[in-house]
């Protein structure tokens, strides 16, 4: 068994050193390995298909250079293509010209939105901002309590006029008025001169029409400067369905990849970036307030294909 794509590619090419050009058969064998590696990394099937075709195209034109063996050469192409998609439009938070900057969080259940709210607030506070958290998830049992605790840990205030689901009523019915809470939260921030407002929303499925409409209504009510779509790095093929549903539902402006401290390869990063064209802005890397960083497309490319070692070799060549 070969562990990484780079090992497998090196094996595919072991007899090739010194030849002038890669044959079509060599390239097909390579592209098969790349396809498999991408699928093992949970990159979405349609994205794999397109990506493999693009790599094949470029590899066909390759001259084998002296410094790199063909395996390295192809890995280099793959890496460049990956970084291009992942980092095509990297950028940082867009702040409003007239404060407050309004940031809305959205995503599937359990993706890491509430935790991210705390991390963002903590980081922004460290940069001299005065963020306010808004508890607009009234659905999940004790989501409001959770955000309040997170706010306290981050040392920022929370706007939580409604206690949310405390168990007295069934979660199947809509509790309170999350749209109203979000709207009032932004008004409150303006009034109290908070320069950033972060609105936490309930987790929802892409296929849940009623809840997706609610998310769209929240967006319409607060006209956010950023709508961040939080997605779990462990997600598999469903990434495309979900990202597409949220793109249509709330038209998110950026992506946050969560739970990157795990050992999932995180192919979803590629799927989401490719399918939605929205930039991946941040990586969430743990449960603590400070486990949060700017997204690095080059690191992610190496992670998806598990080929950090080969990249180092290429850089040295």
């Amino acid at each position: 068994m070969f562990n990484s794509l780079s090992d497998r590619l090196t094996a595919t090419f072991k007899n090739l050193r010194g030849r002038g050009r890669l044959s079509e058969a060599d390239i097909d064998a390579t592209v098969r390995e790349i396809r498999r590696a991408l699928l093992d990394a949970d990159v979405a099937v349609p994205v794999v298909r397109e990506f493999a075709a693009a790599v094949r195209e470029r590899a066909l034109g390759v001259e084998v250079s002296g410094a790199l063996n063909p395996a390295q050469q192809v890995v280099k192409i793959v890496n460049e293509e990956l970084v291009e998609i992942l980092g095509g439009a990297t950028r940082t938070l867009r702040l409003a010209k007239v404060p407050p900057t309004v940031i809305m969080l959205a995503g599937l259940q359990g993706a890491g939105k509430t935790t991210l709210a705390g991390k963002l607030a903590h980081a922004l506070k460290g940069q001299g901002h005065t963020p306010l958290l808004v508890a607009a998830d009234l659905q999940r049992p004790n989501a409001v309590t959770q955000l309040s605790v997170v706010a306290e840990r981050a040392g920022v205030p929370v706007f939580a006029p409604h206690p949310g689901n405390q168990g007295a009523v069934d979660v199947d019915i809509v509790i309170g008025d999350p749209v109203g809470v979000a709207r009032d939260g932004v008004a409150y921030a303006r009034d109290k001169q908070h320069d950033v407002v972060i609105v936490d929303t309930a987790g929802r499925l892409g296929v849940d029409e009623a809840l997706m409409r609610q998310a769209a209504d929240i967006r319409a009510a607060i006209s956010p400067d950023e709508v961040l779509f939080v997605i779990d790095a462990m997600i598999g093929q469903d990434a495309v369905n979900t990202a597409t549903a949220f793109l249509e539902g709330v038209d998110f402006t950026g992506v946050v990849l969560s739970k990157l401290d795990g050992d999932a390869r995180g192919g979803a990063a590629l799927s989401v970036a490719k399918v939605t064209g929205r930039p991946i802005m941040f990586a969430s890397t743990g449960e603590k307030l400070t486990d949060f960083e700017v997204f690095h497309p080059d690191r992610m490319a190496g992670r998806i294909l598990d080929m950090g070692d080969v990249l180092t070799l290429i850089e040295q060549a």
Binding site: M234, I235, D238, R265
Partner: peptide
């Protein structure tokens, strides 16, 4: 296990 989980579910 979350049904949305990909290949990491095995690990």
């Amino acid at each position: 296990l979350d049904a949305t989980t990909g290949q990491n579910g095995m690990q």
